[in-house]
Design a protein around this nucleic acid. Sequence first.
DNA 1: AAACGCATTCAAAGCGATTTCAAATTTTGA
DNA 2: TCAAAATTTGAAATCGCTTTGAATGCGTTT
Lengths: 339, 339
Amino acid sequence: MRLKDLAEHLGLSQTTVSRALNGYPEVNEATRRRVADAADQLGYRPNASALRLATGRAGAIGLVLRGADELGPHMSEFLSGVGSYMAGQEIDMLVSTVGSHQEELAAYRRLAASQKVDAVILHSPTVSDERAELLTELKIPFVLHGRTNIGQPVAWLDIDNTSALERATSHLLDLGHRRIALLNGVKGRTFAEHREIGYRAALTTRGVAVDPALLSNSAFTDEIAFRLAQAMLELKPRPTAFLAGSMMTALGVFRAIRQAGLQLGTDVSMIAHDDVFPYLNADNMYPSMSTTRSSIRQAGTRIAELITQILAGKPQADVHELWPVELVLRESSGPAPRA
Amino acid sequence: MRLKDLAEHLGLSQTTVSRALNGYPEVNEATRRRVADAADQLGYRPNASALRLATGRAGAIGLVLRGADELGPHMSEFLSGVGSYMAGQEIDMLVSTVGSHQEELAAYRRLAASQKVDAVILHSPTVSDERAELLTELKIPFVLHGRTNIGQPVAWLDIDNTSALERATSHLLDLGHRRIALLNGVKGRTFAEHREIGYRAALTTRGVAVDPALLSNSAFTDEIAFRLAQAMLELKPRPTAFLAGSMMTALGVFRAIRQAGLQLGTDVSMIAHDDVFPYLNADNMYPSMSTTRSSIRQAGTRIAELITQILAGKPQADVHELWPVELVLRESSGPAPRA
DNA sequence: AAACGCATTCAAAGCGATTTCAAATTTTGA
DNA sequence: TCAAAATTTGAAATCGCTTTGAATGCGTTT
């Protein structure tokens, strides 16, 4: 069913039908209704490629994901946040996966040259992100999930990691903890740097020295966290509290704590960062988990919204959102054990 | 940079340039090289929409994912498998997320009507899958990851769940277990039904009665599995072995076992299904996990390959692959404890 | 030398939508 | 009542590519 067919069926010109369907004012209300009904009944939908060619808009946004690293549970949640908004906007999500950093840059160049997307979402930036630079150079609009420092201003949405970690660390200090381990994200990522800054700030304010042995940088997986935590628990004196970078990390740390014959919440405390996964509820755990909480799904939805604003003309430089992070205290964080 | 610009730059017609770039035989080898070099150097890439409109091919495949259920770690792995193949084929992945079953059907209708994709991948089918019926009706080619029973023949790739569970169950029976719990997937999904069939077959062959209290159907998450396993471990007599539907499930069961003060591998055995996640290695767990193993990522890659074959003309009815599942015995499955 | 075949190249017609510009019809105002 | 204005419709151009059918040039054959 092409526009032409529909027009013939109605005894109208393509022009009028097109206008009727796209809500132009110069078409008679009766005609519009007639057209709309027919389109509806015959299940007409404009051919996407033709529409895109004619309008010059791709009607899609791009997401380039680096293999296994990024396509984990975090990205899934984020994606469905983005998707839930985009579905209502008739904007598609074009997802590419790449193996290496080089491949990723090449993928953006391809997207730009073939004009497959109107904008992209950039995820997990480094402190000075090369991809962000490339995208500004290619003049393809984007919203950054996180922050970075490049010459140009960029549109971004981030959570306040520094303050979150500062408060979480301070709270543990208040509870008497002095050996506080930080299982942080991969070195070089902005969020990980920000978290470390908050952590250090809280410690230094209290005059507690930072022990490098209690600092680690890694991907957020159960397994890796298990090993790191296990190693740290063998230190003398051992840490009495953990700051876990994600809920997956928290699961690993939890295993290590039990394995060491210790009790979470009494022998060892933990505050984990919770991106809010529907299938992994901090409140339902035993003991329930204290968290710094911020919904990554909501961030996705909001970023999708920001993208449509940018496509509607809002300057990228005006798009900045820093979301506060809740500190939710539950059973996993208790007073430090007596020395 | 449009084809026209490139052609003018070279002093050739669009026709010749297009042919040169697309490898048609009737263009002079010297010309072809000259064109290719210029295209390369100027970074020319055909406008995707124009190309699609002209060829009638969308150059994309669709994946419609149901919100939180499906966008978990399994889908992530699967997706990156698909993506790794598609990247080389210049085929995009169009990902939509939907909330309800109705929305999902509507999404397929939209994809079909607007001709945004050449084919789709269907995931986690039910025994008689409505989506598969709709897609055949809409005449949009698809490959099913799993199996279903509808009137028409469909293209599918599946793993041999029945045999996997039959062997795993038999092995546990050999070890003397008689109370074997099955933490299965959501009721109605083909793979879950197949697994139950294998499980029942093994038990009945040995004359062991199936206890409904040891059978559960649910999503594969750590948390849910934890609760189910916890409840089952309180039964008298308690199960001495668990068949876990996924590695996430296994983590939950593991927690429940420890929580009950039991030892995995001696007091209680477990064999989990392992879809092979890069960040969750069965071999690295303590104790290492016995598994029925099949890489969901490889399945994704292969399905991508099958899709391109179908798009190249291979009849859908000829595409059937049933992959065997490895049974990998490690420390988590041991002899049944003395009664 | 005319005719033929072959290898290359090109002009122009699609693909299916939007949009410009012009035409037809109806309404309005004097 | 008739010209002017407002409303409604349509023909054709356009988006950037592929592809059909025709044309060009050149060496070979008759």
